[in-house]
Design a protein around this nucleic acid. Structure first.
Lengths: 234, 234
DNA sequence: ACAAAAGTGTTGAGAGTACACCCATGC
DNA sequence: GCATGGGTGTACTCTCAACACTTTTGT
């Protein structure tokens, strides 16, 4: 890029697009995968739901901007977040050229301190399986994020990021089933997750309302969360 | 993002970063994986090598901007290209805030019409295994692109994109070996690539200087280039 | 006939997949 | 003692990975 900047770059007044970050915030609740949305107050798309986001400050990195947005909306820091994709179709915002760098975050429901309604802007969790119409190209962005999440779930151990610090294997399996949208075999699931060597027993058990108490596990943060892909070439 | 735009958005003069696209252009030649670099004429980093790139026009999409850059540098259109990542550390360009959306492209050597030296700017192919010092954070960007290319190669059939229209299985294996940096077993390679059902025989053979003539293949563009990943969960 | 590259099969090991019953607890 | 969820093992199949020789051509 910069190779072609003219020497008198600062003088040259290029027309610049606006740049925002949008953060797709996933969480699990009520046996469902939810996305945090905010209700727009202003035109365009006033009254419609949208992904939380905002302008990048000139002195912060993209990651910092995304983390700031996440904190503003949920009060949460230090959760799993990764850059998703950058969307920049010329008229995705009808007012002016806006390029948005999308991130997605996985937030354990129990870590959320800052619940919808505490802000001036109305926010709410919506099931990814039943989304309202979204402003701008946000439906496409959420779709993309959901696809990526599913894909990642299949070959990394990122699913823990949606659970509390300690959890049972049934909790974990449930999380995977909700996100992947299919039932998994309990024995195979357990064998595989345990042999992946990414969990450690806490030694505690959790007594639920009924049934046998379940062993509690914790994610080993020194664990390697990736699994080998099936290589096309040997 | 836009949810938080004030109504008087156009009036509000937000400070905007500059946005560029950078294109990491890979090609195979001389049994090596090469990247196209341009020599900077201006400060900063004058005389250093950099990834080709430039500003996004306000009326073109990110993909169009990347494709335009690719065309300007190589004369090539219609090759494999995908968005890589967006780099936006506050001071990656010492002059001002520049956010760059990086793409990478795979260009068959024989399709390049516009060779280095035909332009005002000096361009050259450099081995990814022996890169000169690069301007800005471009070393990091190339590294990231190379990692992604290797990774993609392992679970998709993207390697064809670096070869001419027709090629032999030995050509293809060689390409994989160059990029992955390891030798592959000929029998396993052939079995796997043929059983993936992504090639079709042309019926022609190619006679090289010596040895038995090799069958020529073509990539089936109706093929599904993805291979199942080894799922973490059954 | 020989040099050079193309082409071809088998086997043992490990992972994937499908499948059904006993266990610990609260009520 | 029964309802509820937790926890366990085995057999078959398929894929992976390692390995060496024959075939076709030009000189």
């Amino acid at each position: 890029m910069n190779a072609n900047l003219p020497q008198n770059y600062d003088a040259a007044q290029f027309e610049r697009p606006s740049v925002t970050v949008d953060v797709i915030i996933f969480s699990l609740s009520d046996d469902d995968l939810k996305v945090l949305l905010v209700k727009r107050k202003n035109l365009p798309y006033a009254g419609m739901w949208a992904i939380p986001g905002g302008f990048i400050h000139l002195d912060e990195s993209l990651e910092e901007a995304a983390a700031r947005k996440l904190r503003e909306e949920t009060g949460v820091a230090d959760v799993y977040m990764e850059q998703l994709y950058t969307f920049g179709a010329p008229h995705r915002d009808p007012r002016t050229r806006v390029i948005t760098v999308a991130y997605f975050a996985l937030v354990p429901q129990d870590s959320i301190s800052h619940h919808p309604g505490e802000e001036a802007t109305e926010t709410a969790w919506h099931s990814v399986y039943d989304l309202p119409p979204l402003a701008f190209d946000h439906a496409e962005i959420v779709e993309y994020a959901f696809t990526r999440l599913r894909y990642k779930l299949e070959y990394t151990a990122v699913g823990f990021q949606l659970l509390p610090n300690v959890f049972t294997l049934s909790d974990l399996q449930k999380a995977y089933e909700i996100i992947l949208g299919e039932d998994l075999d309990k024995r195979n699931f357990r064998r595989k997750i345990l042999s992946a060597d990414i969990l450690q027993e806490t030694g505690e058990r959790r007594q639920s309302a009924e049934g046998r108490p379940a062993m509690l596990y914790r994610y080993r943060d020194d664990a390697v969360a990736e699994v080998k892909t099936r290589r096309l070439f040997p």
